[in-house]
Design a protein around this nucleic acid. Structure first.
Length: 577
RNA sequence: UGGGGCGUCGCCAAGCGGUAAGGCAACGGAUUUUGAUUCCGUCAUACGGAGGUUCGAAUCCUCCCGCCCCAGCCA
């Protein structure tokens, strides 16, 4: 495994080698208007990762220039999520709002230099004056105001003399530029709004363009890394820094933002999912937010591994969500202790096992890690197995329990199905089996083989629990591609099973800690658990080749080449029942 | 007939003029008290297309095609 490299790191390395900079300073600059998601995780890993690898620092800076959208709750959650992801900004916690006074002074500097003017043009007119993509814009009639008048008006804007929208401060650049961002961009707007940090001190707020590069310069950021859609802003970023007495000269670099199949990473849409109650909240385990993913049971290391695997480039791309599942499994497999849980219980009565008797068996906590130790499980006359592990009339390739068939109960005994107890309508109530006492622990002295080993729990001490099985939030690989995103919501994105049975060792599992339910997947206890009723979330399933075998109609299905634009549909894990 | 970008295996992604890394997926096979894991093997004469330069091009040049972003007083 070679060390991580990408074009950003190449640039940093070259800048260090050429002496363009002696140190490296990056920043992660979220606007506190929502929760962080997987796209942010990519940026966080990149910015903090680069800083760490090159002995520099990465700042956490809140880009809080638009008070109408920002909230303290988001400031708090962002810090929590970045920390949870495993990164530390140390002393370097900043807010663009900390620079409002400096920014204001620089705005006056531009006015003095004749490079900025107060414009009274109403928003609608300003839009039409801006021209179109193919036609140049027209100069505002206020573009030629005197420095003194501009200064006076700008100061009165700050003083709160004018209502929202009455005037703005604009940079005087080029209304005919092919780059729309250079057609006299707005630098300040009037906003009589309460800011989570500066309260009511300000009546005007700088725009992104007038705050971001300057904040970078104030903090002596060397490499300001953002996503591709800001590419067109770079000439403005540079123009502004060229025309103020900037304390340092940061440079902007852009990379492709993250897209994932069956997933939406638009803060606007995520906000709607929450506000319209399509999910239970920002940390709903189906959400692609860091908080949701954490609640689902995904460890931070898995997210970092996912980000490492997908790389950083400038090419537009959409990562297959399976890639995330694979990183989760690869992280959890060596770490998660194994336990047994039955999601859809089917009672089994061991007819030759003495009534009222139980015994204790030893089970290992991890097959590849002896140091994980062992635990004990109870065995008795009545046990439960997974309903889908029994078929009355099994097809050829079904290895599990069936009438007359012998299988192994993991860590316990071989059992053979001898009969079926039925209800009045012929439904299966329970299975009658016999066990072979000589196979205790799971090995037959005569070394006879069975085709399957199945998980189970004892009726005597099983704990009832609720288990929530999550599937993709969206049913379409590219949600919204055909119109309304909400129309692509997966109606079956969660399945709640309320009569699951757990081995007792699971009852007091810590919330959020990953555990593997053998043969089923990775799960963790949810915070909705009560002392009497545990609730578990499925983080992700195990690879399931049986499900694949089952799914294929015939082996002769022609290997169809995916048509352009379409994607393989077999992306879901464990679509049981 | 505006400006800025991007096109390498089904999906990501290395490659920076010297003869196509790696990961995910897929497909074979071995081991297996999880149809899991692990292990071994297969998987681009080919780099959007066409020309050109060169002993040699995914890498340089020209033209063409396709896709993405920009007309918020959002970020």
């Amino acid at each position: 495994m070679s060390e991580t490299t990408d074009f950003i790191r190449d640039i940093v390395r070259a800048d260090l080698a050429s002496g363009r900079t002696q140190t490296v300073a990056t920043r992660f600059p979220p606007e506190p208007n929502g929760y962080l998601h997987l796209g942010h995780a990519k940026s966080i890993c990149l910015n903090f990762g680069v800083a760490a690898e090159f002995g520099g620092a990465c700042h956490l800076r809140f880009d809080d220039t638009n008070p109408v959208k920002e909230e303290q709750e988001f400031i708090d959650s962002i810090q929590r999520d970045v920390r949870w992801l495993g990164f530390d900004w140390g002393e370097h916690l900043y807010y663009a709002s900390d620079y409002f006074e400096q920014l204001y002074n620089w705005a006056e500097h531009l006015i003095h230099a004749g490079l900025a003017y107060v414009d009274d043009t109403p928003p609608d007119s300003m839009r039409s004056q801006r021209g179109t993509l193919t036609e140049p814009g027209q100069n505002s009639p206020f573009r030629t105001r005197s420095v003194d008048e501009n200064l006076d008006l700008f100061r009165r804007m700050r003083a709160g003399e004018f209502p929202n929208g009455a005037r703005v401060l604009r940079a005087k650049i080029d209304m005919a530029s092919g780059n729309m961002n250079l057609r006299d961009p707005v630098l300040y707007r009037i906003l009589h709004a309460h800011h989570p940090r500066t309260g009511d001190a300000w009546k005007i707020y700088p725009t992104y363009d007038f705050a971001h590069g300057q904040s970078d310069a104030i903090e002596h950021i060397t490499h300001s890394v953002c996503t591709l859609e800001f590419e067109d802003h770079k000439p403005l970023y540079d123009w502004l820094l060229d025309n103020i007495p900037a304390p340092s000269r940061p440079r902007q670099y852009e990379f492709a933002r993250l897209n994932i199949t069956y997933t939406v990473l638009s803060k606007r849409i995520l906000t709607r999912l929450v506000s319209e109650n399509h999910v239970s909240g920002w940390d709903d385990p189906r959400m692609p937010t860091i908080a949701g993913i954490r609640r689902r049971g995904v460890p931070a290391a898995a997210l970092r591994e996912f980000v490492r695997r997908i790389g950083v480039a400038r090419a537009y791309s959409t990562v297959d969500v399976q890639q995330l599942d694979a990183a989760i499994r690869d992280t959890l497999n060596p770490a998660a202790p194994r336990r047994m849980a039955v999601l859809r219980p089917l009672k089994v009565i061991i007819e030759n096992y003495p009534e009222g008797q139980t015994e204790t068996l030893e089970a290992i906590n991890h097959p590849d890690d002896p140091s994980a130790g062992t635990r004990t499980v109870t065995f008795g006359r009545e046990i439960y197995i997974e309903a889908e592990d029994f078929m009355e009339d099994p097809p050829k390739k079904f290895f599990r329990l069936a009438p007359g068939k012998e299988v192994r109960l993991r860590y316990a005994f071989f059992i053979t199905c001898t009969g079926i107890d039925r209800g009045p309508n012929g439904e299966i109530l329970a299975l009658r089996c016999t066990y072979d006492p000589a196979t205790k622990g799971g090995n037959a002295p005569d070394s006879r083989k069975v085709q399957a080993t199945m998980h189970w729990v004892a009726a005597a001490d099983a704990v009832t629990a609720e288990v929530r099985l999550y599937d993709h939030l969206f049913a379409h690989p590219n949600p919204g591609a055909e119109g309304d995103v909400m129309a692509d919501l997966n109606p079956a994105s969660v399945e709640i099973l309320s009569n699951c049975l757990l081995e007792p060792a699971l009852a007091d599992a810590p919330i959020g800690a990953a555990v593997q339910f053998e043969r089923l997947g990775y799960f963790c206890r949810d915070r909705d658990s009560t002392p009497s009723r545990p609730v578990f979330n499925r983080t992700t399933g195990l690879r399931d080749t049986w499900a694949k075998v089952q799914a294929e109609p015939t082996k002769s299905q022609p290997a169809k080449r995916a048509a352009r634009g379409s994607r393989p549909e077999n992306l879901t894990t464990l679509k049981t029942t």
